[in-house]
Design a protein around this nucleic acid. Sequence first.
DNA 1: TGTATCACTTGGACGACATC
DNA 2: GATGTCGTCCAAGTGATACA
Length: 366
Amino acid sequence: AARDQQQKANDARKELHALKRQLADVTNADDSAPQHGRKRKKMVDGGSEEDTKEIKKLGHKFVMMKMIWLPDLSGTIHTKLDDQYNPLERFENRASKVQGELADLLDLLPQKFHGEIMQSEWLIKTFHEAMQNQRSNTHTRLRSQCGPEIFDCTAIDLFSIESRRDKFRQMIGYVERDDGSARYDRFNVPLLHKNYNGSFDIETVFRGPILHLASLFGGHKCALLTTKALTAMKKTGKPNQATGQTVSHLWALDHCTPGSIGGTAIFARWAVSADTTLTAQGVQTGINWHADLEKYIQYLQNGLDKRKASVLKLFREWDELFFPDSETSLARNNDDEDREDQTTKDVMDMLDADEEEAPAEPQTDE
DNA sequence: TGTATCACTTGGACGACATC
DNA sequence: GATGTCGTCCAAGTGATACA
């Protein structure tokens, strides 16, 4: 009976498609398409259908592998590339951050989109919409669909601002001081660590088991995006075999990046935060998520660039877990010896140099 | 900006059949 | 009977879109 119903539904769908096609034929009857020569590709607001599709895909990939937000995409794209830009100084000031964003974009976009076309309204709009789309889909699926499985809680725990705040705020870095003030810390965060010992630790940071579960949403592995898959990973500690298409296949991913690990940390923290919307600056928590992400990327990129042992080890662990067959790991490909590790204090001094105090008084008036 | 939902694509499971 | 091939069904992942 079910198959009979399905067949009827399929027939109805086919009929609808046929009617739509007929309507399109009638609508297009007056189009004065060239009769000879090469067929022109259909243009959509300045870009061909294929190009639009490709830019959308790259926008999705950018969110998961580079940066969740680009605060001023148009401004960044219209910025002149500085030949003197030094990636090691990326996070020193706003200008160098923009140069870093531009470098990320140029790295991601194929050559054919460089130059004038990159500054076209069509490309910027398409890319921007794709980024928004990816953020929405990811955080909705992370919090609403698989949140209880990942964070080992009930759906009710994740439902309201108050329940998330009460149950999880310590987990995402909320600390109260002796003087009564409180704030959300960026690195002293239990959720980021494996076996958190009360403070930031370069040996355990970004190794929390919850991060590994949440990273399934970041395209880190051809894994089933279901509660069943999450349960399997919880049990075995490893992602299972994929069925169907996955983003790692679609986006041709074969290694983790500072943006993907840092982004996973932000998505995971946000999912159990009091914030209702995923904005660069959290409305309820006051957390500057974008700034936190920049700091995470800064820490990871700095460790890679300077061949710091703890960071290289971290990348090796993530790549072993999610891309065991990959030969392009950012940590594996360098023949240099690992260098002496930084101390936790050195790292904190570097990262806290320009840190702003973020208030942490969750609003509950929504 | 968040959410629900739909369409499309992919790949695994399974049965039918052919071949050795 | 064992094995391989093919076709079909279905579950699942992803992107897009409408609507709040």
